[in-house]
């Protein structure tokens, strides 16, 4: 920030500064671009056993943004038949197949909001289409939570921007005070619309998929009643 910053400009450009700050990500700038897809190590980087181990652990446990109403991850992986029904049901093509780098999760449904976020349909056709019941109406439609990077968000830096709060499909999930957006974490569903529309250079929204989702309720109540507390207006 300041002119007498000890950080060299080359480091800034190469993203060597933000990396350590974000705790072990090799390349934070790149990860900001593709939060779900950490890039491979730069070619020519010396092998580093500890780092490789950390990376591999990280990749295995990397949380994945599931469609709304998803059961706990192990149960999801066990139950999902990769039948494609939710992918086809989504009217916005928001649900995609997890790519190979997601390892065990490859081929299962996920959302990458940079490409297309979840627009929080009131009738959740993805859940309605899920035969194996790993997407359920009786679970909260909470996929994750958004965070705003105040060092990148334009209003936090002193210029006008109101896009995320205007486009957010969940009433009350983004509060604006003195022109600056704040995420209300309890209300936010992690749909990723704010990340999708954020025009800040590098994107000021960090989306954290739910690390721990609730297990499915014991009885088979799938599809009985649409969960209402998270429903929002039909997107435009």
């Amino acid at each position: 920030m300041s002119e007498d910053s000890p950080i060299s400009r080359r480091d800034m450009l190469r993203g060597r500064v933000l990396g350590p700050l974000l705790g072990g990500l090799r390349d934070a700038a790149a990860s900001r671009l593709k939060p779900l897809a950490p890039e491979p190590a730069p070619s020519g980087a010396p092998p580093d056993a500890a780092r490789a181990e950390a990376t591999s652990r990280y990749a295995k446990s990397f949380p994945i943004l599931r469609p709304p109403g998803a059961v706990e991850e192990e149960a999801f992986l066990a139950g999902c038949t990769k039948c494609n029904a939710c992918v086809e049901a989504c009217p916005y093509d928001s649900i995609i197949h997890a790519p190979v780098r997601f390892r065990r999760a490859a081929g299962t449904p996920m959302i990458n909001p940079v490409g297309q976020p979840c627009w929080m349909c009131a009738d959740a056709p993805c859940i309605a289409s899920c035969e194996p019941g790993v997407l359920r109406f009786d679970l909260p439609m909470k996929m994750g939570v958004a965070r705003i990077d105040e060092t990148t968000c334009l209003p936090w830096m002193g210029t006008t921007c109101t896009v995320c709060s205007e486009q957010c499909p969940v009433p009350g999930a983004i509060e604006v005070r003195a022109g600056r957006p704040r995420i209300i974490e309890e209300t936010c569903t992690g749909c990723g619309v704010c990340q999708h529309v954020c025009p800040a250079p590098g994107n000021a929204v960090i989306l954290m998929p739910m690390a721990q989702r609730p297990p499915a309720p014991p009885a088979d109540g799938r599809g009985a009643t649409p969960a209402s507390e998270c429903n929002a207006d039909e997107p435009e």
Binding site: M12, L13, G202
Partner: peptide, 15 residues
């Protein structure tokens, strides 16, 4: 984009 992001973060960078 990465560079734009960094400049947006207010880094004073120029050569």
């Amino acid at each position: 984009i990465r560079r734009s992001a960094l400049t947006a973060a207010g880094a004073v960078i120029a050569a």
